[in-house]
Amino acid sequence: MTLAFTICSINYLAQARTLGDSLKQTNPDWQYVIGLVDKLDGANLPAELIPPYPMLEVDQIEIEDFAGMCDRYDITELNTAVKPFYIDYFFRNHPEATQVIYFDPDIIIFQPLTRLSQHLTEYNMVLTPHICSPVNDWLNPNEMHHLNTGIFNLGFIGLQKTTESQRFVNWWKQRLVYECRIDLCEGLFVDQHWVNFAPIYHEGVWIEKHPGYNAAYWNLHERFFSEEQGVWRVNGEVDLQFFHYSGYGPYKPQDVSKYQNRFTFENRPDIAPLFDLYRQRLLNNRNDVYRTYPCVYIKPPKILYYQQIRKALKSPLNKLISTLENH
């Protein structure tokens, strides 16, 4: 059995529901779980806002130092740091799940993922690189950005339940307890850089370069889209498997992503219908309501401010400046 999951807080449940709806339509035999980095008992969601999918709250998956992680991390870091802990939980508590697959909530699945399922019978894990061909300008993101944020995009990872995968997950958990930070001066960008080591440390790692997998703003320079009889195609050659709408907001529908400045819907009209589709699905899934719910694990502003100052002071550049100013 294949178990697919995502991780989010209540304010992102519209995205998680949209992902779940697409999985239900395309891969109905898969089990889908929402890992919730939040608490439902204090939110008092009305019945119509309860997703029709199982939700597993993060404080139920037995993370030994979860309180410490909440103190160390902001909400983005925390949501990514718990990823291998969820995988480990599913490995331990769902023996029927021979394949465990993570998707970021801002993804739509467009096809039955039969190629992925096949690879997860042959390999221990499947990863997707951000890009598969050179970027020929210096707009954002370029190759230097990917050096800073990681070769692989961890908005997706698939694992077969094997001894080798368990070894990887155990190692990844250890690293993310303290080092799932956004700290580019220290070579860290949440959970992503650590997985650069996966193909080196472990056997049976498939690097998926199929252009229909994890299409997103960072690889639009190499992927063009068309719709043929209701099926989305990439480069006129293969079916689009899943699209990752990272950085897109339905209330700024003119922007492809807040993280890039290379493409617009004017110079890439081929992607406009894909984003119109996503925007409508988010609105149908009550994004306007969910986004008003604060996450219980978000630090109060004053605490968060001092936490950010403390992180900034760890920067080698700031340490050097401080040393020079004091002498």
Rank of each mutant, 00 (worst) to 15 (best):
L176G: 01
N214D: 03
M144V: 11
F189A: 01
N196R: 13
P211W: 01
P199M: 06
Q160H: 07
L176M: 15
L147Q: 15
M144R: 06
V177Q: 04
I157Y: 02
N170T: 14
E208M: 04
H145I: 05
K161F: 01
H146M: 15
L159V: 14
N196D: 15
N148G: 11
K173L: 06
H202L: 15
E164Q: 14
Q160C: 08
H202W: 11
P211V: 07
H210W: 05
L188M: 08
G204A: 13
M144S: 11
T162M: 04
Q229C: 04
W172M: 09
N170W: 07
P211D: 02
V190N: 03
E164P: 01
T163W: 06
W218L: 08
I157T: 06
G155N: 02
E227M: 13
G158P: 06
H210M: 03
H193C: 07
Q174W: 08
F224A: 11
F189S: 01
W172V: 11
F197G: 08
N170M: 08
I157E: 00
W206G: 02
G187P: 02
H146W: 12
N196Q: 12
G155M: 00
N214C: 08
Q166H: 14
G230S: 02
E222M: 12
N196Y: 10
W206N: 10
L188Y: 00
G187F: 03
L220C: 03
H145C: 05
G204L: 10
L147S: 13
R181H: 05
N170L: 08
I182W: 10
N142Y: 06
R181Q: 11
F197V: 11
A215W: 00
E143S: 08
